[in-house]
């Protein structure tokens, strides 16, 4: 048994461990991650200001534009995530176990201040993954006009899971903190499976009722 290799190599742990992942350089006035990639602390008011500005300038097209922003972000996010994790763990992202990948994603959300991400795999029989994000910074609590509004998150998660699953999955938001719900909740699955879900959301059906229908 080659124990020497075990002792001579680093044993990687939690890439996104708080305290180790975010580093600051006071002299330069910059924040970066442990690989040296720059990070920004964006104030909540800037997010609101961007939404407000978009709403004013392009009105009803704002949700679509925000979702597209999320998709573009998702492309870059996945590229960077897979590069960083592959370098740190010494193996491609595809070789991480599901537990490791889910843990990394959850921690990534936590450490960047994007909220508390939770995965619910019990919908796999319906061909879907259910994701919840508590404390999402992308929507203002109790500010909604009747429909879910985490458009950036929808775009981001959609592209992220397209890369992870290698399928053209879609993401539909079924509950939103802007509507007074406790978390943003998303269903991710193939478009044909999600088609009725999108219609149910449009008709104002509550998340619990949507999930109940999917169980039947």
């Amino acid at each position: 048994m080659d124990l020497e290799a075990l002792f001579s190599q680093p044993v990687p742990g939690d890439y996104f461990a708080p305290g180790a992942y975010v580093q600051g350089d006071l002299e330069l006035g910059t924040l970066s991650n442990r690989r040296g990639n720059r990070l920004l602390a964006i104030p909540e008011y800037l997010v609101r200001a961007i939404y407000g500005g978009l709403e004013q300038e392009i009105g009803k097209a704002a949700p679509l534009v925000l979702q597209n922003c999320g998709r573009h972000w998702g492309q870059h996010f996945f590229a960077r995530l897979s590069e960083e994790l592959a370098e740190y763990y010494g193996k491609p992202l595809a070789e991480l176990t599901m537990q490791e990948l889910v843990y990394c994603l959850t921690r990534c959300w936590q450490v960047h201040g994007w909220g508390q991400l939770q995965f619910d795999w019990s919908w796999h029989t319906a061909g879907m993954i259910c994701l919840q994000n508590q404390y999402s910074p992308w929507v203002k609590p109790n500010s909604g006009d009747g429909s879910p509004a985490a458009h950036v998150e929808v775009g981001l998660l959609e592209v992220l899971f397209q890369h992870i699953t290698g399928r053209q999955v879609q993401c539909v938001q079924i509950s939103c903190i802007s509507l007074g719900h406790p978390s943003n909740q998303f269903l991710i699955g193939l478009p044909e499976r999600l088609e009725p879900v999108a219609d149910w959301v449009k008709s104002g059906l509550a998340a619990a009722a949507i999930l109940e229908r999917l169980r039947q």
Partner: peptide, 15 residues
């Protein structure tokens, strides 16, 4: 806490 945050939670999340 340092152990828990840097290492413990990582191993706890695995089977």
């Amino acid at each position: 806490e340092l152990f828990q945050q840097r290492v413990g939670e990582w191993y706890q999340a695995r089977p």
